[in-house]
């Protein structure tokens, strides 16, 4: 599991995962969290995940394939996602990803942690 505490201040070097308006530094692991969140509503193929992330972040984050695929494979190899090939909405074959039980647990943990951190940072910035 990626530790937010350890990675604060490091910049994501993955090309293509960028804040829409400009290439801003993003905390590592955020991508994983967003992907897990995107899949929490149901199974999606790669492009679907990308679109869904864009949608749930109101277009703030655009996930590009160069970082999406490595992240999907990493999460699947960790046992948080599972995948199978299915016909897509417009009748093409696509690989669909789905959260596993462990993935759902992981999403819960990461969400809680994220909330703690963002709360702490928000408080720190207010003072």
């Amino acid at each position: 599991m990626v530790s937010y505490r350890a990675s604060i201040g490091t910049t994501s070097t993955r090309k293509g995962f960028a804040v829409a308006d400009r290439r801003a530094a993003l905390l590592q692991g955020t991508l994983d969290l967003l992907i897990l969140k995107a899949l929490s509503a149901g199974e999606l193929h790669g492009l679907g995940v990308s679109r869904r992330v864009e949608q749930i972040t109101d277009g703030t984050f655009v996930v590009q394939p160069g970082s999406l695929f490595p992240a999907l494979h990493r999460l699947e190899e960790a046992g948080w996602l599972t995948s199978d090939w299915q016909p897509s909405e417009n009748n093409r074959r696509a690989k669909y990803y789905r959260l596993t039980k462990a993935g759902r647990r992981q999403l819960g943990q990461e969400t809680a942690q994220w909330n703690r951190i963002s709360l702490a940072i928000a408080r720190a910035l207010e003072t």
Binding site: G46, L47, F69, N90, R92
Partner: peptide, 10 residues
């Protein structure tokens, strides 16, 4: 296959 399928969906 997966990457190509992505390109086609796109």
């Amino acid at each position: 296959d997966e990457v190509r399928a992505y390109a086609e969906l796109l």
